[in-house]
Design a protein around this nucleic acid. Sequence first.
DNA 1: GCTTAGGTTTGG
Length: 790
Amino acid sequence: MPVLVVKDGPGPGTQVPAQLQRIPIPLLSPTSDCTGKTVKGRVVHKGPLVSMGEDNYVLKTVIQEEDSQQNMSPEHSSINIILFGALAKDYSESVSQADMLLVTGFTVGNSPTAQKDKLHACNLQLAGDDAWMYVWPSTVRPRASVPRKRTSPASTEVTRAAKVVKYTYVPLSDLKPGVVVNVYAVVTFFKQPFRTKGTDYCSTLKITDQSNKKVGCTIFCDKLEEHPKIFKMGDIIRLHRVKTQLFNGAISLLTSHGFSVVTFDGTVGSPVVPRTSSGSFKFGEEDCQVVEALRTWAANQSLVPAEPCVPLSAVQPKTYFDLTCQLLAKAPVDSSCTLLKVWDGSKCPHPLLDVFVEPNTLEGSRMLSKDMANLTANVLVYDNHVEVARQFKPGSYLRIYNLHAVPGASRLPSNDSGQSDQTEHLGFHLHGGTSYGRGLRVLPEDSPDILDLKRILETFADSDINDSSMFEVWSTPPESFERTCDHTVEQVSLAEVKSRGPPQVFHVQVQLKSYQPQRLYQSLKLFCHKCKTIRDVPDDVTVGGLFSEAQKDVGPCNNGYWTLALPLPREPPSESPSRTLTLLMSSQLMGKGKEKELIFLKGATLEETCRIASAYSNIVPVTSLQGTMTLLDLSAPFLFRGTKKYYGCKQCSQLKVGESLGEGVKVWDEESVADALGVQLLQYGLLMKLELQDGTGSLEALLWRDAESFFHVSAEDTAADQEAQDRVQETMDRLCPPGSSTAERPWMDLCLSAYTVEENGQRRACYQICHTDTRSTNPYTHPHATPSDT
DNA sequence: GCTTAGGTTTGG
């Protein structure tokens, strides 16, 4: 097996076995004894790799001795070397013109071309296991900055010498059939790996380079992670050891033995970060330059058609597009279809199809809030893609290729009773097959497109914070209003409201100019009656994280509870740790035959907890703390009742988990459970800021204490119930139709309570909408009517 | 043991 040794720097080094003896090239003759001899020179010519059939190659090269005696003519210090077999291939891939070469294990023959090329009358022939080459890459070319593997081959263990590091890359236009080559190129088309009828996965690519030749490339590999990580057209690809092949009259590339691949982002100016699963790939400055050259070249070629990546906000019905998004939840629909709930932070102008699935089949966050805001796209993936989607975890970032936006999308059997008006709703289908690159994959969290996406998604979190800070400014609204308004109070203008000042109740006739938050789910808050703080409802990703965290505690908790441990079957991947679900029931309750009325659950995911909660009346997720049962962090719900979740105040709760339970409790509901556990129960509330206007000016007013009667919903319901959410949305759409001018908005009779807030020693007037039911408010139906002036 | 696929949709 011929192996080439690389050594940095010029001149012979200690790596060449010392017992070898060098022969000056001019002294070589067909009668020379070549055993234990070496010849050394610089590569002045490197011929093409010529294929002589399967795995048999020939390559001719010329080296010139540089330190020959001066009286020797250059002709006689240059000699042809003929390389055979695998050595020829290795040489072709590893050695460049101007490299320094030392060969051993050769035979000397007569050069048939001596007359013509005026070189040495002899040539050197290298073949078989005895032939060896040592290469010192030229110092003229840029060098790899990564540390090279410098295995010093001990004389006894020469065969363990390091493989050569340098590769040569063939322009696509120069490819000849039947050779193994290395290429660098730009990806102009690709399919994500798909299962073949054979043993491997297959990636199909089309690539091109500065030679403008377009070449198809088929990659077979049984390991998915060894397939090229291509995220979009325009990515750069480096292929090592691919075989050229004539197919349909054109050259194509196919994986061959020892194949490897690295890919790079194709964006000009972005960092050159190799994407590979291989731990031993070689990558240096030269690669950076090649990548950057390809990027620059490609940027001026319009190789990539119109940007296939489209945000939800720009999706046109009936089109195919690529979607970059975050997976919120998924649910199997049937054996050939899986539902993925995704979002990209942009709002689709078309109403999105809501695919209803049984809550207990949904993995991940329910994201009702985002559904409500028309932010969640329901993607149905079919057939071959189901297997791929099965590996995805909610929270991960995906790109879905060639997604079909289908208006009035198909009705799923389970969806018949859901939305009656389907015609306007956009559904998304990833059809089966791989035509047009249809497929999907996870994108790494640090890839540029995902960093962009994360920034967008984070603005949602930011606006949550802004909502909270908005109410710090407004201070905690007063709990109750002494004055009541039955709208018999004299109606005044907003200008008068401002001039009269607090404390007072006013009756006004106004239009809605604007409101916050625009994303209505953000108006849902948790309120503590004791400390008066308002907090946001955590999203399911956050809560899911707390559950995962709690699962890490595998210790027992034995404080007098009756325990039922349920080992769970391992989930793929098989190396995932095994888990146990533990149900703990109060012995006290058990004595009264009421043990099922309150169940503590340990080791479950959020999803499992929700599922179990649908079957039992009160589920309290717990974990163990030094052998004692304890509640999860109070950022997570402490109680699940059906589809409802209840939270406790971190500040005001004084937990007494594990103490006696159920003395005097007749009915277990959220209040009695909270009492028994020492939890200060938080109330759900709706909080909005409305900007009101009439002919005399505008004024900002909070909607908080009476928000539930304003919308005719219970805030608690809006946390778990789509219908309640829709009602809030409908009310706001009626008062402030999207895209409407202020003249088109209805007039409302409102009751405003003015009160004083002290902040940093400064007093200012604040206003809150009270005693107003938007149903009984009877908004004016004449949009252009002017409010009566009083 | 040494194939598999070989870009091109329209549907659930």
